[in-house]
Amino acid sequence: MTESRVDLDSEKMGRDLVALVLTVVELLRQLMERQAIRRVEQGGLSDAQVEEIGTTLMLLDQRMQELCDQHGVRPEDLNLDLGPLGSLLPRE
């Protein structure tokens, strides 16, 4: 009677899958953040637009941290080590 056995594999697999999805989301978020900074530095945007971009990016960052906490994923888990290529995301 081993019904009470806790199946950790599916949990771990689920968390790894979530970590992979969050990694892709984090990659795109950081890429868009850098592109936004480039666009703002390039000029030609109204102050309202610049502020809107800043607010949106800040909210996105907060939402990302909430998601990571919610799924028990540490921020450094999202950073993939690509061996000779270095890392996917900057190492804080």
Binding site: R38, S87, P90
Partner: peptide
């Protein structure tokens, strides 16, 4: 030959490629 990992994170490279 290349000893350590390249110092630039991939996301910065992508950003420059897009730029």
């Amino acid at each position: 030959p290349l000893s350590g990992p390249i110092g630039v994170p991939l996301v910065d490279l992508l950003d420059r490629v897009l730029a």
